[in-house]
Structures are given as C-alpha cells and as structure tokens.
Design a binder for these strands. Structure first.
Lengths: 222, 222
DNA sequence: GCAAAAAAAGACAGGCTTGACTGTTTGTTG
DNA sequence: CAACAAACAGTCAAGCCTGTCTTTTTTTGC
C-alpha cells in the first residue's frame, strides 16, 4: 500500500536529520552534554535507533553536525533580534540588552555545554574552535555596526571585546542563578559607560552617528 | 607489628581524604566532569577503590566534598594573590590582572566544570549554588576593598559587578582559546575605564583624576 | 510492475561505571 | 595483650552506552 503519501527520499532525509539535530540541542539544554546519549536523542526525536545510526553512523558525527546546526541557530537568532531593535534614544541600552538576552538564551546554554565539553575533547574542539571563532567575529562586527563605533580609534576595539566578554560572563552566571534584573542593571550601567566613552573618542559628528544607526538598523526582512 | 611507623587514624583519614579531593580536582581540570569516574580518581590518588568507598560511600559524596574543597582553594588563592599585589601607581591594572589570572587558573576551570554540571544536576546545584554565591560575595568585597571603591555612590556597585562578570567571561573564553595578550589588553582598557569613571563619581578631587588619566595613558612595556 | 538501492527498525555484544560485598591490615581501648 | 573498631584492598554483578549486524519497509530507475 504505497498509496498513502509518497515522500521523496531527499525530503525524508532532510526532515530526519533536522529532527535529530533539534533533539540533540534540546538534550544539551535539558540534561547537559554528559547525559546526552544517542539513545536519548533518538527517543526525543521520535526516530528509531536504526534510522539515527543510518544518518549519523557515530555519535561524533551527530555531535559535529549539531555544532554546525547550533552555530546557524545562533547566527539567525542574533540577526533576528538585531532586526527588531528600536532606533533613536537609548540605542546603546537596547543593543546591550539584546546581547544580554541572547547570551542567556537556550541556544547559548547549548553552546556553553559544547564549549566546556570541547575543552577536554580534541575532536570536538577541532570543530567547535573555528566555528566559535567565526561566531565571535560576526558578533563583534554586528555589535560594532549596531553601535556605530569607529574602531580605528585606539581603545575602541578593546571596549567592544570587553562588552562581548561581559555578556558572556553574564550568560554564564545566568545558567545557574537566573537574575534578569541584576543583568539589566549592570548592562544599563555599562551602556552609560560606553556612551560616555565612545562619544568623546569617536563620534564628534552626531549626524554621521544617526545615519550609521539607521543604516544598520534596516536589514532585509527575509 | 607496630614497628614501622605509627600513624594516628585521624591523620590517616585526613591524608586519604585530602589526596582523593586533590585527585578529583585534577581530574576535573584534565578530563572534565563527565569523564571523572570514581575509578579514575582512585587511580590518580593512588588510593585503592575500597579505601575510596570507605571515605566517600557514593560518588555524590565525593563530588560534594570536592566542591567544598575547591571553594576553599579558590578563596585561598585569591587571598594569596591579593597579598602579593603592589601598591601605589597602576593599582587598578594590577588588581584587574590579578582577577583575570585567577579566572584563568586551573581552580576556576575546575569550578567551571562543576558549575556547568550543576546546571542539570539538582543535587549538585544544591551544593554549588550557595557556595558559589558566597565566593561571589567575597570576591566582590575583596575587589571593592582592593580598589577602594565607594559603593554608596550610585552606579559603582554595578560597575564592580560588571568587572567580575567580565573576568568570568574572559575566563570562559580562555578555557578553549588561551590568549593572555588579548586578555591583558582588554583588562587594561577596562582599568582605564574604571579609573576614569570611579574618579568622577567618588573622588571630587580632580587632581587624583588627572593623575589617574596620565597614568593610564602611558602603557607599560612589560 | 519489478528489481535494486536507500531508509528505517530493532536486536545484540563489548566496554565502562557504579556501588555492594567479602576479606585483610592497622590502630585503639580495657 | 586481647578484643574491638576503623581503615584498607579487591572482586563482582547490574545497568547503561555505543556501534555492528540483520531484517523489514519505502522509494526510485527501468
């Protein structure tokens, strides 16, 4: 009875792999990397163990694919959040809050699990390292664009890096003691700090500042 | 016969437990929490499995004791580093570098492993949570004291918190891509930021502020 | 339609970890 | 010094995880 619904194999493969990768990320968030067993993933994905092994012969294959998947997820989430940013006053605060929220989201938690696991797993590190570096660079550039910062000014680059390391630290703290209010206060304070410092060192021209903001604000809306 | 060397049982117990806890911390750093098996710990400690099970009946008992041990270690290391700090010029830089070094040290790495593991382990979280909170408070106080910050001034408390979250983020980044130079640059920049901000918000004395700025302008050549 | 290939399902063995259990040595107490 | 308790040593079974293997179903090419 092949009369029910004919699904092309390409589509089936795509769906299966996607379900497995999503389940893997879910497991990373919910039970951590250590307890994320292949059996658990297949159960959560609603995929038979045989099918799983067919698409990802080894656990390493699955995890490596999950790393790439997660990298894509993080990029998308950041871009989407950046699109929703308001323009105008308190731009810096909004940007920082957006970053803070991202580094407290489940995708960051999953990335953290992989991050920590990769430290003592050479094979995983080989995959996580470069990708994390790429995400880091992209996030850096995004932040620079969103805030309209002139990196040619000495010290500004370090200031952006510090900001990103700060939100990373906040994200880490958030994983075991979620305190959004504390995070908000700290980020607001840092935004003031940034505004004061950046204003005096780079943006003498407020018109250019406004245009940069408007420009980076309107990304295509897919 | 008691001809060899008489060792009191209390001392034996103390030594055994200490060796096991040290080995546990070592394993956390070298292979991570996930692969830290009781067998591995007993091997590394040079303690028989039976003896281990005698002192720590379950793995949970061992890990919980290791958490406390590690907390003590971190406190001691911080206090020791604080004592060695130079006084006088560039105080802020020295303090930040000290914090940065601590959050890039093996004890922090071990704590990070427990931290991440605790997120998905209720029993562990129950032990790690309060202790981490305590260490956090102590570190905060230490930083405030070392930098001579007046927390009654609005915003200063958040600035110290941001500083600690920053070094935490730097420590996390350090675990998979050790880049001490980058860390140094960022912390120096942050120190300048702190000096400028704290000066204006707590010390109305503009002479102190000017000297601080002149100080931060000339980079050290190490 | 039919054969071949891909996809999916599930059983099975080998390796590792944990904690219970039994036996041995060493220190303490009367 | 004798009895008791604590410390120490090592074996064993149960459970889980991974990856191989065989079997069944579905899709594709002819």
């Amino acid at each position: 009875m092949s009369s029910t619904t004919r699904v092309p194999q390409e589509e089936r493969t795509r769906v299966m792999r996607h379900r497995l990768l999503e389940a893997t990320v879910d497991c990373l968030v919910e039970v951590g990397f250590a307890r994320t067993s292949t059996t658990l993933v297949s159960q959560r994905a609603g995929v038979s163990r045989g099918a799983q092994l067919h698409h990802f012969p080894t656990k390493n294959d699955l995890v490596l694919a999950a790393v790439e998947h997660l990298t894509r997820l993080r990029g998308d989430e950041l871009a989407a959040a950046a699109d929703k940013l308001p323009t105008g006053e308190r731009r810096t605060r909004a940007v920082l809050r957006m970053l803070g929220d991202h580094f407290a989201s489940p995708v960051f938690t999953a990335a953290l699990e992989l991050w920590v696991a990769a430290r003592t797993d050479p094979g995983l590190l080989e995959a996580v390292g470069p990708l994390e570096q790429r995400v880091g660079r992209e996030t850096h550039r995004l932040t620079v664009d969103l805030l309209g910062i002139d990196e040619s000014q000495p010290g500004n680059r370090e200031l952006v890096q510090a900001t990103l390391d700060l939100v990373r630290g906040l994200g880490l703290a958030d994983t075991i003691s979620d305190d959004a209010r504390r995070r908000g206060r700290i980020l607001d304070r840092w935004a003031d700090q940034l505004d004061g410092s950046i204003a005096t060192s780079t943006r003498a021209d407020s018109a250019a500042r406004a245009s940069t903001r408007a420009d980076s604000a309107k990304k295509e809306k897919k």
